[in-house]
Design a protein around this nucleic acid. Structure first.
Lengths: 212, 212
DNA sequence: TAGATTGTTAATCGATTAACAATC
DNA sequence: TAGATTGTTAATCGATTAACAATC
């Protein structure tokens, strides 16, 4: 499942998009697809797609193309979606609750164990089927259940300290919505810093460019 | 304000991050910074920063560095944050309400005019100071008030049709949370497709890589 | 077999880094 | 003036594209 070669960052960033498109194709009932057709659909070149897939050994067949089922399985395996990873969410404010209620964690390879919040009025409530527990029990829970990653939907100022404490307690990845840029890669802990404002600023810029 | 040269996509994608870091420096009371110091802070090279800023004419001074105030103003102008753009949000479900309640649209250059939802129970309510109006009045509103962009927080299936209708009514950009990839660049309408699941899948992959 | 399409190597392109003269 | 640091050109590096032989 794991390939030897170091895979470039550019390729890794395209993997979720490949996976998403393959899932869509499957839902549409498509059973096989050529690099050419997939390229057209995704706005890439056929060459790039073949190069990308071949970083992982290549799972196509000459004269036929790529089998959609196989592609989905391989990409899923590469992304580690079947690894049965677990997560906790910290901070059940508006954004936290929006994720609890709406976001399909399992589609991205995670089982969400529960949420934590300091507000006692939220403790014991459930959102999207996920229980909110008291923050005071967080580290005891992490020590015992050993979730792989933590979703940070707490206020920004608390982020750096909490992140380090979580790493000390064995957390192996962070999905960080706090707005604070966290970098724990040096500790071997990957972080996905989500900056919605960056996305909206880019849109602001692009809208301005169009009228030029 | 607008520069002649075509600026590469890689540079444009870094602009919001530059702006964010400059704002932080200003908040910390820093008045000037060298490309070297900024590079260290952001995990880039000094060379890259100078190259990037020089795409827009260069706003530093030899022997001194970059003035933080000036940098903030210039980057803000390039991003178009002072252009007074307006937005409407469509779909006041969980995610829509999370944005209404928490997200600072003005920090990204937009004034959010109001929200729309088909659910009559939400119509008339306010979230984060933003009124929810009936979907049936959406196009009349867009025709009259001419918002620059629409924030799509509706169910995925409705996205493509609504997007095209909005463009017909003069919408000039989309911030798209529906999960459906929208591409209207051919019509001169930039779209920012936000895929939170891509981000979490990437994290899943990276966590797996660390243990290899 | 003939046609299609991959896997893979070579060529091109673009982005990053290094170096240094200009200048504050 | 001397020191610092930019703006800018040249060198390197990496990623994308093109081409084609391998093969289903």
């Amino acid at each position: 499942m794991e390939r030897k070669q170091e895979v470039s960052k550019a390729v890794v960033q395209r993997l979720p998009r490949y996976y998403r498109n393959i899932c869509e194709l499957k839902a549409e009932g498509v059973q096989r697809i050529s690099s050419r057709a997939l390229a057209e659909r995704m706005g890439l070149t056929a060459s790039q797609i073949r190069q990308d897939f071949n970083c992982f050994g290549g799972f196509g067949q000459q004269g036929y193309g790529y089998n959609v089922d196989k592609l989905q399985e391989e990409l899923g395996a590469i992304l580690g979606l079947r690894a049965g990873r677990t997560a906790v969410l910290i901070g059940a404010g508006n954004l936290g609750r929006a994720l609890l209620n709406n976001f399909d964690f399992s589609a991205s390879g995670f089982k969400l164990l529960c949420a934590f919040d300091a507000n006692q009025e939220l403790v014991g409530k459930k959102f999207g089927g996920h229980e909110v527990r008291s923050s005071s029990t967080l580290f005891e829970f992490v020590d015992r259940r050993k979730p792989d990653v933590a979703v940070l939907t707490i206020p920004r100022t608390h982020a750096p300290d909490l992140a380090h404490e979580l790493v000390d307690h064995g957390i192996r990845g962070l999905w960080n919505f706090t707005g604070e840029d966290l970098h724990l890669e040096g500790l071997g802990v990957p972080v996905e810093n989500v900056h919605l404002s960056d996305s909206l600023m880019t849109l602001c810029h692009l809208v301005g460019m169009e009228e030029a």
